[in-house]
Amino acid sequence: MNCYLYDGTADGLLSSIAWILEEEPDPEQVTLRERMDTLFEEGFTIGTDATLAESLFFRLKQQAPDAAHTLYSFMLAEKEGMETSLLHYVSLAFKHGDKVKGYLTHPAVRDIVNVAKKAGRELHRMKGLLRFEKLQDGAYLAKMAPDYNIIHPLAYHFSRRLRAQHWFLYDVKRRMAARWNNGTLQFGTIEQFTTPALSEDEKKVQALWQVFFKTIAIPDRKNPRLQKSNMPMKYWKYLVEKQGE
């Protein structure tokens, strides 16, 4: 069984998968993991090639758009130690096309699909649970601390939705930010984050939302367990309606 190593980056991962699929007769018998540079590390290191990584993704998108979407969601999760599973999954996706997502009896497919599903679920959740606050200068800011690195697709979602607004997303955990202004979307990292001043009417609108949130529940049907299972407490920190609970 051949063992390959890569540099630990996303581009490195995808380009080594592309390389293995090209060179190895039976990719499913091959393992792939991150290079640790330990003394007795065994395996052949594959160099990183961003264009190769990109072309792999586009080829997959053409042959199996669903599987490419799964691959994209999987990469958002930034999971370590699953490189071999991903290699086998991509190899199977080229072989079977989009039908591969049904091959859940295969351990690699199951592992990749499960992780991708978790990341996809959080992305969908954050589309609803993100809360913007209006700042003094009229821009809007939303802070979040998601488990997965979803800022890119999330910002894209809001660029279609809140087109006329000037807004920022800030991932507190990863110190990453997105900015939308006048039709352009930018990404970057923020070293020192200071919360800017809120606009004058912001607290008033938040109070309106808090009142709505309280009164829309039917008192005879209180169900805190269901509420928590739909909206886990880890997301409450940035929810206007859950402040002070």
Binding site: G128, R160, A164, K214, I218, P219, R221, L226, Q227, L239
Partner: peptide
């Protein structure tokens, strides 16, 4: 969304919060 306007719709629907009755 209309160009220069606010808002679009998503075919899957999006939940934004869950009230105290779990709905």
């Amino acid at each position: 969304g209309p160009y220069g306007g606010t808002g679009n719709t998503s075919s899957s629907g999006i939940c934004h919060s869950w009230a105290d009755d779990g709905r």
